[in-house]
Design a protein around this nucleic acid. Sequence first.
DNA 1: GCCATACATCGATATCTGTCGATGTCTTGC
DNA 2: GCAAGACATCGACAGATATCGATGTATGGC
Lengths: 120, 120
Amino acid sequence: MSKSPVLELTPSEAVACCSPLTRQPLSSSEAEQVAPILKALADPVRLRLLSLIASHEGGEACVCDLTDAFDLSQPTISHHLRVLHESGLISRDKRGVWVFYRARTDSLASLAALIGSPTQ
Amino acid sequence: MSKSPVLELTPSEAVACCSPLTRQPLSSSEAEQVAPILKALADPVRLRLLSLIASHEGGEACVCDLTDAFDLSQPTISHHLRVLHESGLISRDKRGVWVFYRARTDSLASLAALIGSPTQ
DNA sequence: GCCATACATCGATATCTGTCGATGTCTTGC
DNA sequence: GCAAGACATCGACAGATATCGATGTATGGC
């Protein structure tokens, strides 16, 4: 009972439902949906990873491109990428021996819209 | 050496310096500045607190307005408000026996701008 | 001055999380 | 098929954090 056949929605896709933070009180369940995504972002290593991936040539980067930028072990980088991926902030694409990650700008935009309501 | 006489900047005010995540790689020190602010937001209770405060009548709320909305002790609510305040996401204003908190929409806007670069 | 009320701080504790080395899995080239 | 390389998973452990009850501090009313 790990994989349900119904609509698969990453956490950050589900965020698009919520109206901006400052508009009306976030419900308890909405807050529990949003918090894990922010938690995924709320780490200096993951922030840099996401930024590196997004600003990398072609908008994507393989793990080997990323590990060099940090003084951290490969499993640790892999762990952080997993957290970002599970929260829906980056997408995975395995091509041959390499795995390419890409920032999901739609998710980031939804998150931004939720936090900083446009002049309201 | 706890309080310096120079310009006092809350963490979230300092964020305004950084260019959007996806624009160029975040530096290590920038990431270490931003992460704590996101970490302050990345909790379901604090998300609801901030949302409650921001959408409350007059844009502000006292602690007594907030504690009732949660099944948590008063010290716990006080702790979360402290975290939000220290990260610069809400402001404090003591009036008589009450302490009023207000969402700092400028900080939220900066954070949003950093995460979701406007169509770029 | 004293008491009630609103809020903050403290100390303790259980849980979560970032990190590592070791190991597993999969793909490619020979 | 086998060895090498790219990446993921596992188990362990140290440090961070959410929560509580108890207690401290400040304000206002009597």
